[in-house]
């Protein structure tokens, strides 16, 4: 059973301006008794503030909000890469964070080599990767191209490959930051099919999108994030109308 629970979770990101990230600033601050470099030095962005959230098994959540409203930060918290700076986060289940699906691709390595490297990064065991290669060959239709360096691939071919690798594992919790959308129409249809299959098998889906259609089609509930706080959480239609009104 997958489950997501956030209690008063906040993410505050310190921004170090040029020179601030340096030893000099720290040493100088020590040397002049704590005044130098402090004024305005630690700019802190509050990406998320006091988020309370309960997502249960079987729920499909759409994340809406303007640019910079904290959608990506929330997804990163759920992926476990952003530890909350305040509050508690409890995520139970195998997570696939599909933010950048070309994660770990080496352009000079062949398609097959990339399947092995990226597969390992995505958390697949050697056996799972071996077993999945046929599936990837089928899905990508790349054939002999898989034996030559991926730098020779077109953008569409590269997308097919990275998409196939990223979707090889069936996660319990699937996190999507904007639904992937490049490639020819035929492949798009195929990719959507595969993604929807994985999403429907996942226990929990959290997807951020600027497209109301995608949210309506994929999700059972929606969250409107507004400047790092939850503006609304509940039925898709009511959240969307709150978002467009706010």
């Amino acid at each position: 059973m997958a489950h997501i629970n956030l209690r008063d979770a906040s993410v505050e990101i310190p921004v170090y301006a040029v020179g601030n990230n340096s030893l000099k600033t720290m040493l100088l601050r020590k040397a002049v008794g704590g005044r130098f470099g402090r004024s305005g030095s630690n700019v802190i962005i509050t990406a998320l503030s006091g988020i309370d959230l309960d997502i249960h098994d079987g729920e499909r959540i759409g994340l809406v909000g303007h640019n910079g409203s904290g959608k990506t930060s929330l997804l990163r918290v759920l992926a476990g890469v952003y530890p909350p700076t305040k509050g508690e986060v409890n995520v139970v289940g195998r997570v696939s964070p599909m933010f950048d699906i070309s994660l770990g691709m080496s352009v000079d390595a062949t398609g097959i080599e990339n399947i092995k490297i990226c597969g390992a990064l995505w958390g697949l065991s050697k056996q799972e990767i071996e077993a999945g290669i046929d599936d990837i060959v089928d899905f990508t239709e790349l054939g002999d191209y898989l034996n030559i360096p991926v730098r020779t691939y077109s953008a569409g071919m590269l997308l097919r490959l990275s998409f196939a690798i990223a979707t090889l594992r069936q996660p319990e919790i699937l996190l999507l930051d904007e639904v992937i959308g490049v490639g020819d129409a035929e492949f798009m249809k195929k990719a959507e099919g595969r993604l929807e299959k994985i999403a429907s098998r996942a226990n929990i889906l959290v997807v951020s999108s600027h497209s109301d259609d995608i949210i309506r089609r994929l999700c059972t509930k929606a969250i409107w994030l507004n400047q790092g706080v939850v503006g609304a959480f509940g039925e898709v239609e009511s959240v969307l109308s709150a978002y467009h009104a706010g």
């Binding site: 476990g80 530890p83 697949l124 065991s125 319990e172």
Partner: peptide, 13 residues
């Protein structure tokens, strides 16, 4: 506090 992320492979504890 608990956070169980599943992006580790089989051989990762």
């Amino acid at each position: 506090m608990q956070l169980e992320s599943a992006t580790y492979g089989d051989d990762i504890d």
